[in-house]
Design a protein around this nucleic acid. Structure first.
Length: 253
DNA sequence: TAGGCCATCTGGTCCT
DNA sequence: AGGACCAGATGGCCTA
């Protein structure tokens, strides 16, 4: 009943509603407002029927009207807060090296968080590797330090990730039976804009993996795996090399 | 049909 | 006092 409207706009973290990144625009969205109004009515009904939660105690309160208004306001705020949270989650999904698109099921919240965590860890370790590599190439850490000092943002993990991901992808997906496609190494385009977020194409993966893998984290086959990309499934968990904290990669659910 | 995921409501707690 | 944040409860939708 009441959740019909809710599910319509929230099931997919409001992809239909979010036509603008601005939260203000989002919440001034007519559709959302309509939903809120409808849901407010539904909320009343729900309260009267002692719906979810079943914690309604003062249904016969003399200040019922005021109490209801307050309750509706609080509910609306909470709803808005959760929508903001979902928007942020969508924003996180967008920058994750994972297949996007209408035909690909959206990552769940927990999977998004796990993937993001692994992604960060992988980039961190890749950055360390890159520093070592550059240090070796230029014969000393001084060169590295001078370069990083001059261009702090250029020490983005992107090239690093590209270099170190290659063996990672090979090893991981040979284990799971996937056939990691040849990584496109295009030196001319390998260097991203300094402030551009890491993307799959930048990391050398211009196309999704051909195979869809089953995984033990309840990700259905509709999820696409990128070779070497951090992935919430345990098979694709990157193997940390630098930090001890990386041993707890698989956050216990 | 069971289980996963999600949105929503709700009351409590903490902060400004 | 009002708002933000949190966690528990509940019910709907979807998929295996």
């Amino acid at each position: 009943m009441d959740s019909d409207a809710g599910s319509t706009c929230s099931r997919s973290s409001s992809p239909d509603l979010v036509v603008d990144d601005s939260p203000v625009n989002f919440f001034s969205n007519k559709m959302f407002q309509t939903y809120c109004e409808e849901n407010s009515e539904a909320g009343k009904g729900r309260s009267e029927h002692c719906g979810p939660g079943g914690k309604n105690k003062n249904r016969s309160d003399p200040n019922k009207e005021e109490g209801q208004d307050l309750r509706l306001k609080v509910n609306s705020r909470e709803r808005k807060r959760m929508h903001d949270l979902n928007q942020a989650m969508d924003g996180l999904r967008e920058v994750m090296p994972y297949a996007h698109g209408p035909s690909v099921r959206k990552l769940s919240k927990i999977s998004t968080l796990l993937l993001a965590r692994n992604y960060i860890l992988m980039l961190s370790s890749s950055l360390e590797e890159m520093k070592k590599l550059v240090g070796d190439v230029y014969g000393g850490s001084a060169a590295v330090q001078s370069r990083t000092a001059a261009h702090p943002t250029i020490t983005s993990a992107a090239p690093t990730a590209h270099l170190s991901l290659h063996p990672l992808a090979q090893s991981l997906h040979s284990l799971v039976g996937g056939t990691p496609p040849t990584l496109h190494h295009t030196p001319s385009t390998a260097t991203p804009a300094p402030h551009s977020p890491p993307s799959a194409s930048f990391l050398g993966f211009h196309a999704p993996v051909q195979g869809l893998l089953k995984d033990p984290l309840h990700l259905t086959g509709s999820y696409r795996h990128f070779p070497g990309m951090p992935c919430p499934c345990s098979l694709c968990q990157p193997l940390p090399t630098t930090t001890s904290t990386l041993h707890s990669l698989s956050m216990n659910k």
